[in-house]
Nucleic acid binder design. Structure first.
Length: 694
RNA sequence: GGGCGCAUAGCUCAACGGUAGAGCACUUGCUUUACACGCAAGGGGUUCUAGGUUCGAAUCCUAGUGCGCCCACCA
């Protein structure tokens, strides 16, 4: 055996080891050597496809480590372990990135036109889209790269079309004019889940709507007061609504009031959606520019008067005084006008949350728009039942509530987007593409060849586990569940791991804009991939969010050095004559105890992995290796020279490398390659997992 | 307005009904022939507060305080 360096240096080994793995082809289950008796059962995970805009962040790194631990341990346990990787075209996100790039060259997407622009996006995708794939390899992810997919590759386009047609023919997809959340910058509609909220120090303006004739209302006035945060929308008001039980307005319902500025008569209506306790209990109803008001307007058959256009400017309907003005300019003019006319009752400070686009932060304008919708009631029920009847379990289980609460209060899904980058809507003319999540929802089976009945689909669907971040439980997980049931008649996975969120050291979110982000690639460069994986998993105990610090990664680095040197010692002591097998009936008490400890460790590590307690599994492995094997046994074995002890020493090392491999694959494989004898499995990656039944 | 999570050693976290542990940091020794990325020994906690249940509580219950996150069509 060649001399090993005194200290483990990850940079010397990681790339070579990964190349060795890729060359062997064992990431592809069909290439695995001789199946165990009884054949191999599949164990399948679909990688949540990262956006082609992205590079690996700490959440990705943690999630990749979790999935790799599962896949590697199952592969060693004799499963056809398949981890399917891929990337997501990420509609709006990618379009925005490319638009920004073009802007630097002084070009807008409209300058280019649709076709040219999409060409640019594909170019961009080819150039940068696989950044994260390279980073996953750096991290040691044992994905089957021969099955790499993209949510807009040729086969995937077919899947999306088939899904759309299926829903359409079933009557679940319809087109309609609705008030939708509209981003005036991205020029597209957005679903509820694509909105973010921002606190704003706003004002609540109390406005007087005069009552015609000499009728009197509460407090003996000839006007009623409505409160609003958006006075400019009054130009589109079609009613004033009160609660049906509100005694204050009893006599007025069914009569009318005079809309300020335009002097239109609009009706007073009663609707149960109104909260009597808020403000004056009377609400202006603007059907075209508020989603709730739109719903009220449908119940009362009110017209839809659009006064704001998709660029966020006032339309001709708003009147000559306002046409062409931006919303905020119109607001100022309206307030000034109301004040001049004595119709501004009062204004008060009002802290308030406003919806903004999750991609660009622009304030959302609700506007009426022709859109495609997917009916959700029946599909949502299917997704709910899958969890309620325990065909799908979340880990930790409390996340099921997030999922069920959303599905129980769901609205139809607006699936059309007015952007250029995405799947074209099959029945549509030129304009729209599908929400990016419409294609992601098909991921667990579209990646396996659906709608074709492929052997892969037959063999590998359904998958076993999905591991993901919590913020896409509804955006993605719920949609995969009902899609799987709808198209495959079977839930796409049995277990959903909702992994911890990696927070900055001070407990804030990691984000580029806050400057709190940590780049996992920097950590890999500094400490190696194994140590980085070790640190992340070491911290992820009990499903709690983790405040990230480098200390556990340093602990990982030291631990790897410990493994390295223990192996160096055992290798030197046994002179290359290392056995993988424990002595059958040890006569020496210390050896028997060592073997028993190794079996016990194997058992608890395996059980912890199966329970998705990866942090606990790693702590057990660490404690076993360092404090039992090294501190006690190796120290004792130094004084011995008998065959039984030598055999125990070698076999315990081999078992330890196997148990540690899913967590720290590079160093353990490098050592295996160094100490292995010809009759050993050619790679630790496919070595048999220690027996846990003893 | 609802919901969820967390509060344990200087720091980051385990333990989840039976005498409080780890990693990092700290102290004191060690060129012990695998490892100073190491070895040995050690210091440090009335487990947020106040009640309660129990023979026994960090662990269960109630209330409070402080952080963090999510959902919602109070205009």
């Amino acid at each position: 055996m060649q001399e090993l360096a005194k200290a483990y240096n990850p940079q010397e080994h990681e790339d070579a080891i990964y190349a060795l793995w890729e060359k062997s082809g064992f990431f592809t289950p069909e290439n695995l050597p001789k199946p165990p008796a009884g054949g191999r059962k599949p164990f399948v995970i679909m990688l949540p496809p990262p956006n082609v805009t992205g590079s690996l962040h700490m959440g990705h790194a943690l999630n990749a480590a979790i999935q790799d631990i599962l896949i590697r341990s199952k592969r060693m346990r004799g499963y056809d372990a398949l981890w399917v990787p891929g990337t997501d075209h990420a509609g709006i996100a990618t379009q925005n990135v490319v638009e920004k790039m073009l802007k630097k060259q002084g070009v807008s997407r409209h300058d280019l036109g649709r076709e040219k622009f999409i060409e640019k996006v594909w170019e961009w995708k080819e150039q940068y889209g696989n950044t994260i794939i390279g980073q996953l390899k750096k991290l040691g992810a044992s994905c089957d790269w021969s099955r790499l997919r993209f949510t807009m590759d040729a086969g995937y386009v077919k899947a999306v079309e088939a899904a759309f047609r299926h829903y359409y023919e079933k009557g679940l997809i319809y087109k309609g004019k609705r008030v939708v959340s509209w981003c005036t910058r991205c020029q597209t509609s957005l679903s509820d889940l694509e909105l973010e909220y921002k606190d704003e120090e706003s004002k609540l303006w109390h406005i007087r709507y005069m009552i015609p004739g000499r009728e009197r209302t509460i407090a003996d006035r000839d006007y009623i007061v409505v409160a609003t945060t958006r006075p400019e929308t009054l130009l589109g008001d079609e009613a004033v609504a009160v609660h049906p039980d509100d005694e204050r307005y009893k006599g007025l319902v069914g009569k009318s009031v005079i809309l300020p500025i335009h002097q239109r008569e609009i009706p007073m209506i009663a609707d149960a959606a109104i909260d009597m306790a808020f403000g004056t209990g009377a609400v202006k109803v603007t059907p075209a520019h508020d989603i709730t008001d739109f719903e009220i307007s449908r119940r009362h058959d009110l017209p839809l008067r659009q006064i704001i256009d998709e660029r966020g400017k006032m339309t001709a309907e708003a009147g000559k005084l306002f046409e062409g003005a931006k919303v905020l300019e119109a607001r100022e003019r309206i307030i000034a006008e109301l004040e001049a006319q004595g119709l501004l009752d009062k204004e008060e400070a009002y802290p308030h949350r406003i919806a903004v686009c999750y991609r660009c932060g622009t304030v959302i304008e609700p506007i009426p728009s022709e859109q495609w919708f997917l009916k959700m009631d029946v599909l949502a029920q299917k997704a709910l039942l899958a969890v309620k009847e325990k065909r799908i379990t979340f880990h930790p289980q409390r996340w099921e509530k997030i999922y069920t609460d959303w599905l129980e209060n769901i609205r139809d899904w607006c699936i059309s987007r007015q952007i250029w980058w995405g799947h074209k809507i099959p029945l549509d003319g030129e304009t729209d593409v599908l929400d990016t999540w419409f294609s992601s929802a098909l991921w667990p089976f579209a990646t396996l060849g659906w709608p074709k009945k492929t052997p892969d689909l037959e063999k590998y669907y359904p998958t076993q586990v999905l591991s993901t971040a919590r913020d896409i439980i509804n955006l993605w997980v719920a949609r995969m569940v009902y899609s799987g049931i709808e198209f495959m008649d079977r839930e796409p996975f049995a277990d959903v791991i909702v992994h911890a969120t990696v927070l900055a050291k001070d407990g804030r979110r990691m984000s580029k804009s806050l400057g709190t982000g940590v780049d996992p690639m920097d950590l890999i460069a500094k400490y190696g991939a194994d140590a980085t994986r070790f640190g992340l998993i070491w911290m992820s105990l009990g499903g709690q969010d983790m405040k990230f610090g480098e200390e556990p990664i340093i602990a990982g680095k030291k631990f790897l050095n410990k493994i390295w040197n223990a192996s160096r010692f055992v290798g030197g002591r046994l002179g290359g004559d290392i056995s993988c097998a424990f002595p059958e009936s040890p006569r020496i008490v210390e050896n028997a105890a060592m073997i028993e400890s190794a079996h016990a460790a194997a058992k608890t590590i395996t059980e912890s992995i199966d329970a998705y307690d990866f942090g606990q599994a790693l702590h057990i492995a660490y404690d076993f290796f360092w404090h039992t094997f090294c501190d006690k046994y190796i120290e004792w074995a130094k004084t011995r020279d008998d065959e039984e002890t030598k055999q125990t020493l070698g076999a315990t090392l081999a078992a330890s490398l196997k148990l540690l491999h899913p967590f720290v694959p590079f160093a353990t494989e490098a050592l295996w390659q160094h100490i292995r004898k010809d009759d050993w499995p050619q790679q630790l990656m496919i070595a048999e997992w220690p027996n846990i039944h003893e």
